[in-house]
């Protein structure tokens, strides 16, 4: 399972990289969103072993739990990447309002007033 997840992560990273290299600002932002999905899956699969225990909520019955640490880190990361996506989207919107284009190549050399 870990190997499969990692390969999936690799595909997501490739797609994200390609999106980030494109000209349309919306694609770039989508690229960053895909990249954070990939990062979350990667952190998950880096733990002690997926599915190798119970949900990390303490009970008397459980013998072992899955690794709780990656979960805590990912929880932080999800929220932060949401904030970044939100900012980028609004930034793109605002820049489009000011410049009239969403093409990164055309943004070059535009004078700020």
């Amino acid at each position: 399972m870990e190997t499969l997840t990692t390969i999936l992560t690799g595909v997501l990273v490739s797609v994200a990289t390609y999106l980030i290299l494109s000209r349309s600002v919306l694609r770039v932002i989508l690229g960053t969103a895909v990249l954070s999905h990939a990062a979350h899956l990667l952190i998950m699969s880096m733990g002690r072993g997926l599915k190798s225990g119970e949900v990390p909520i303490l009970t008397d019955e459980a013998l072992s739990y899955v690794d709780p640490l990656p979960q805590a880190l990912i929880l932080t990361s999800i929220v932060i990447s949401f904030a970044v996506t939100a900012i980028l989207l609004v930034l793109a919107y605002r820049t489009y309002r000011e410049t009239g284009t969403d093409n990164l190549f055309e943004w070059r050399g535009i004078k700020d007033e």
Binding site: M44, L50, K51, E54, V55, Y65, V66, Q71, L75
Partner: peptide, 8 residues
């Protein structure tokens, strides 16, 4: 869900 992470 599969990886036993309900909060996530």
């Amino acid at each position: 869900v599969i990886f036993r992470a309900p909060d996530l």
